[in-house]
Amino acid sequence: MTDLLPVTAMGDSAPRSESFGPLTLSENAGLALASLALRQGQDAPTPFGLTLPDVARAVTSGELGAFWTGRGQWMIEAEGKAESDFAAALKAEAPGCSVTEQTDGFVVFEVVSEAGTAPLEALMSKLVNIDPKTLGPGCCTRTGLEHMTVFLVRRSETRLAVIGMRSLAGSLWHALSQAAHRLEY
C-alpha cells in the first residue's frame, strides 16, 4: 500500500457533497473506471459476468456496471475500487480486449433527487440538450455540458451520474451546483 495520499478530483481529501433543495450532488471518488474495446472480429466478453449493454444503455450488477460509449466500446465501473489496479483486473476478465485504465481520467458526480424525477429533469434541462424522456433508467449518453463533454448515466428515475473529465472537475461542479442552486428560486 503506497504511502502517498490521494486527493479527490476537486482537490480535497474527502469527496464533495452538497444539497440544493431536493437535489444532492455528490462526488463519487471511489468509482473505478476502465475502458474496454473489442478487437476486430472479436465477440463481446462477459467480464465479471456482466453482459455488455447495447447502444446507449447501461447495466449494473452489484458493485459492477458497464455503459456503452461507442461502437464496440464500453466503460466498466467498479464501486469502491478506485485505488486498485482495476484495469488489470478487467484485462484478466476480458482476454484479448483492449483495456485502458480510466479511473482518474474522470470525475464522477452523482445527482440524486429526493422528490421524484421532476427536479432531476429540471436540472438536466438547464445543462444538457438531451430530452430527459429519452434518458430513462438504464440509459446513458455522452453530450456537451457548458463546453465540456460528459457522460450521463441514468442510474434510476431519481439518480443520474454526470461523468466529466477530471481536470474539469471544478468547472463541472460549478455548472452543476449553480444550476441546482438556481432551481431553488
Binding site: T69, G70, R71, T141, R142, T143, G144, T149
Partner: peptide
C-alpha cells in the same frame, strides 16, 4: 455544391464516430 452534398461530421461530444 448548392444542393445534395456528402459530408463528414465528427460526433466529438458523443460517441466519437
Amino acid at each position: 455544391p448548392a444542393g445534395v452534398h456528402r459530408e463528414l461530421w465528427f460526433h466529438e461530444q458523443g460517441d466519437r464516430s
